[in-house]
Structures are given as C-alpha cells and as structure tokens.
Design a protein around this nucleic acid. Sequence first.
RNA 1: GGCCCCGUCGUCUAGCGGCCUAGGACUCUGGCUUCUCAAGUCAGCUACGAGGGUUCGAAUCCCUUCGGGGCUACCA
Length: 489
Amino acid sequence: MPNSSLQSRPVRVRFAPSPTGDLHVGNIRTALFDWAYARHTGGTFIFRIEDTDTDRVTDEYIQAAIDTLKWLGLNWDEGPEVGGEFGPYLQSQRLDKYAYWAAKFLEDGFAYHCYCSADELEAVREAQRKANVAPGYNGHCRSLTSDQIAAFVADGRKPVVRMRMPDGSTTFTDLIRGEVTFDHNFVPDFVLVRADGSPLYTLAVAVDDVMMKVTHVLRGEDLLSSTPRQIRVYQAMGIPEAEFPLFAHLPFVMGQDNAKLSKRNGEVSIAWYRERGFLPEAICNYLALLGWSPGEDREDVSMKELTELFTVERVHSSPARFDMKKLEAINGDKIRALTPEEFLNRSLPFLKDAKVVTGSDEEIALLKKALPIIQERVATLAEIPAMLKFLFVSEFEVDQDSLPKISDPESKKLLQVAFDRLQSVSEWNHDSIEAVLRTALIEEMGLKPRIAFSAVRIAVTGSHISPPLFESMELLGRESSLSRIKSSI
RNA sequence: GGCCCCGUCGUCUAGCGGCCUAGGACUCUGGCUUCUCAAGUCAGCUACGAGGGUUCGAAUCCCUUCGGGGCUACCA
C-alpha cells in the first residue's frame, strides 16, 4: 500500500482513550509511545476523548485521565484544556459531524438501515456458531424493498445504520507487524449508528482521524482487527488512499498470569502507583521498556532521551509482562538520582499525608538534614514517613515487635553504659557519638557491633531497622536520644 | 469454532545468516563490604517452544506443528 506521500505531511499522532475507568498501565504505555513518537518527529500530539459510549464514560474519569497525563508529563498540543484548530476534542461534542457522514453514507449507498432486533441478531449468531461458520451479520437488511421497510416502520422498529462491506479484502501495512490482510468474508457489515441515533466508535474514530488530519495511529493490538472497518469508512468518505493514516498496533501489556492486565492480576490504575510513591519518570521509563528498547544494553532513559531515541521500528510485536519488581528497581534508581531539593519536594506530600510533619520551617530544616541519609534506602516515596517518623513524634514508643529484643538484662546493662558514657559527649555529632559508643561497648565491653548498636538503635529509633544510627542520634538531638535510652533501661 | 496477531533466560530485552560455547537489566542464590535496612561490588543459576527444510554456516530465512493472546457487540 503506497504511503510515501505521508513523509511530506507533518506528523500528527493522537492518544484517544475511552475513559470508562481510571487510565491503566496499558493505556499509559500507549499514550507514552504516542507522545514519544510525536515529539521525536517534531509532530503534533493530539489528546482526544472517545466518549461515544455515554453509559460507561463519566466526567470524573475524563478529568482523571487529563490529570494523569499531566502528572506523567505527557503534554499535548491539541485537546481538552488547550483546544486546537480541529476541535472540539470530546467526541460527545462532535455528534453533528458523525450524523453528517452517516447520512451521506446512506445517501451514497455505502451504508443502509438495518431493522434486525437484538434477539434476531443473537439467533443468527447462535445458528452460525452451531453450523461452525464465520459469525457475523448475515446481510438480512442489505436490500430491503420499500414494502419491507414500511412494514418494519409500521411495526415501530427503529433502525441502526450499518456499513456495507464490499466483496474482496483489505490489506494495509502495519508499521510494527508488516502487511496484514483481512478477507471481507470475515469482516461483517458493522453498525455505525445506534437505533437511538448515537454514533459508535467505528464511525467516530475514523471520521475524527480524518478530520483531525491524523497521520499515525499508534494504538493497542486489540484494535488490529477493527482496522479494515476504519479503512472502509475512509473509503466511503472519499479519502484518497495516500491520505489514510498509517497504523501501528502496539503489543499488549500483560499481567503476571499472562492474561491481559486487569485489576485481578495486579494493580493497574496509574493513580494507585502515584499514591504508592512511584515517580512519573520512573513509570514512564519502565513502561517505555515494555515493548520497546533503545538497544545497546541501555535501560535508563529520561523523558527527553525517550523523545530522542524513540522510533516505531524498534517497537516489538510480542506482548510484554508487567513486572512490579523491575518498576521498583527503576523507581529506586530514579529516587537516588534526584537532587536534594527535588527529593525534598517529592517527599513532603507523603510526609504530610502520613501526618509525620505539618510543613513548618523547623521541620523542613530537619528534613533537609535527614533526607540525604535515607535517599538511597527507599524504593518508593511512600516508605519515607515510616523511616523518619522517629525524628518527629512527640509521644515516642518502641515498636511492639522490637521491644523484646532490648528487654533482657544484658541489653539493659548495655544501654545503661551507653547512657552514662553518652553524657560526656561534648559535641553532639555522629562522629563523637560513634567514637564514644565504640569505645564503651565494643572495645571495653567486648560486644559485637551488630549486637550493641542494634540495642541502641531500637531504644532510640524504636525499630531494629532505621537510618544509620549515629547520624540518626545526631539529628534527634542529645536530649531526646538520652531520654529514650533512659526510658528503655 | 472462525479470522488475525505473537513465540530468545522466571520477567523485560540485545540479536536482523558467520562477531553467539547467545549479551545486558530485574528477580533469585552465594560471597565481599557493613551499626540495622538499603546502596555498592563480585560470582552463580537459567533461554533461542518443537520438527522439518534452505545454506558451507541459522536465534536470525521458509514450511509445518504446538503453545499463548486478541477479535468475533446497537463496547472500545
């Protein structure tokens, strides 16, 4: 199929979700590739909402989709909130356009009214299944006489508009899969407009892609088999073949059990990852590696690098499984790469939500000193509150599961020694704290470091897992550190 | 069932006829480091679904087969 003329057209890519729920991992991977392709080619990224199924799409989900894309940094050039010369970008606001084309198709003979009822259609399908033949509309209403139509109308039946698929086949070149052909024997006449007059996806998507001058359609693999239907609509609209968009069907993102990702086999909503303390750039970096790779054993890519490196040619044709462990690893890498300022800014909302801090100047000052010692210790931002809580609590208590570890006589004795000797520390900083404790507990008492410091750690931080002990004590301050040790004795 | 897509370590991938006794990353196992947890570091485990071709030579090309997935709506 010739399409060389497209090279001269400016690239226009769209991400067109149907927000029937929170945007999920698969949607976002598609959005990311759409965005990266547009940016890589210097083209236009269009964000369009496919809300023709008004029963399932809500304003709330639409807003959530907008927020999610923004949060991820996938900025669009045309679409909701920013507008554009081919708007509106909500299909529910474009109904007149679909109605126009549906009427035109009827008039030109590309489409026809179908009066079959849902029950009748189901009966046909059932029979086809039994007879083991290709399922699909049987063409019952393709050429009704005016008498037949009159009878249906008199009967009170409301027709749908159905597209007439001609004999033959449709072949197109998928940018990822190569040449794909569908025999029209397996592409039944499909519905364009419901009996209530509302348009279906198949009509709206094709009309909009043409009207918005979309040049490249990068979308999920589940839409592959609907492509010949869209092409049929282009043809009916009278669009020259050279102006058809180019298609690229992206492989699925699968869940752990090798089924299409869903709530059953892992959390899929991006909002969930956001709350769990994942960085948007980590999510994008990880998702970019699902079905694509920059090659050369490279894995760490920034958003900017992604736009520089991304090409559809390097997109895989096989599905990828989502691996939370790898996402966590990348998230940890991205966190470690944050500047201290960024790390503070990203951590603060989580600390506030967990009620660890309120955001006062004193708290911020302490955080600026505390955050660097935990930055390499967390894989997600959500882990931070628990790690720093001991620095901010007013009513300190040792964790229940750690308490027994310092309740024995040996521990009490050790803590008493630590308490006594720590009194003499002139300058309260981690170096002198460490020096004093090493001398008293390791050298003089002959204890093993991990035993001795573990007890002090539990007494001071309340847990057997904490940031580095001496730094923690320095930040906590002499008074609190000593009183906590004292109360454990 | 029919049509279509897909098939390299457990997972994500590199590979596009000789550079492959198949490389990297995550996970896992073991070691080092070490005040805990991490981080870092070293090593190890483990793959071309199977069977036929084509070729001097195949993970790479072709066929068959098996396996996985999608579609099969007045959903998208």
